[in-house]
């Protein structure tokens, strides 16, 4: 909850644009000069990339700003309502694919918007998400998601989720008897 509130606060109040928020030294300054006490309270004995800004996807504050930026809706009413859709580990999976699909704000928002309604049929959430992201990355090589309207985009994400769940269910059925034999 702390992270989600801070993500919103950083995004609303820092006055950064995305080009500036991509500069790693800005986050090192915020973590080590401006807020060293809070940074080390949040991550006692942190690995270097949590505070130095060597990897924004891991940075104590940088990753929160980016989470808010990628998920913020272009509307006045509840623009940050999608922030809590994914847990930290799940969002890391998305953010780590910044260069393929993580840079498409409309795609990430659409995924977050329909994620709670996806029927995973008992498959672990993380496995489904990883599989969906792989499919979207693969399609993204020949498909321009940005060119689509919201409904078309929702259908694409739903298709990816349906395929991912079907494949995972089939895999678990194959793996089941083997485990039983063992």
């Amino acid at each position: 909850m702390f992270d989600l509130e801070i993500a919103q606060l950083l995004h609303q109040r820092c006055g950064l644009v995305a080009g500036e928020a991509a500069v790693r030294s800005i986050w090192a300054f915020i973590a080590l000069v401006l807020l060293p006490d809070v940074s080390y309270w949040r991550y006692p004995r942190p690995p270097g990339d949590r505070v130095l800004g060597t990897d924004i996807t891991r940075h104590v504050w940088g990753r929160l700003w980016w989470r808010a930026h990628l998920l913020a809706l272009p509307q006045r009413f509840e623009p940050y309502r999608l922030l809590d859709t994914f847990g930290e580990a799940a969002f890391d999976q998305i953010f780590a694919r910044r260069r393929s699909i993580g840079g498409s704000r409309v795609l990430i928002r659409t995924l977050a918007d329909i994620w709670p309604s996806i029927d995973r049929s008992g498959a672990p959430e993380r496995d489904v998400l990883v599989d969906v992201l792989k499919r979207l990355s693969r399609w993204g090589a020949v498909v321009d998601f940005e060119a689509l309207d919201q409904n078309e985009l929702r259908r694409q994400v739903q298709d990816a989720a349906d395929e991912a769940v079907a494949v995972l269910r089939a895999q678990s059925q194959i793996a089941g008897p083997r485990h039983a034999d063992a």
């Binding site: 993580g102 940005e146 060119a147």
Partner: peptide
């Protein structure tokens, strides 16, 4: 079919639709 223009910025790694 559509004709569209998409932008991609290298430092933010963000992309978006500019025109269609």
């Amino acid at each position: 079919l559509d004709v569209s223009v998409q932008w991609f910025a290298s430092n933010s790694a963000l992309r978006g639709r500019a025109w269609r």
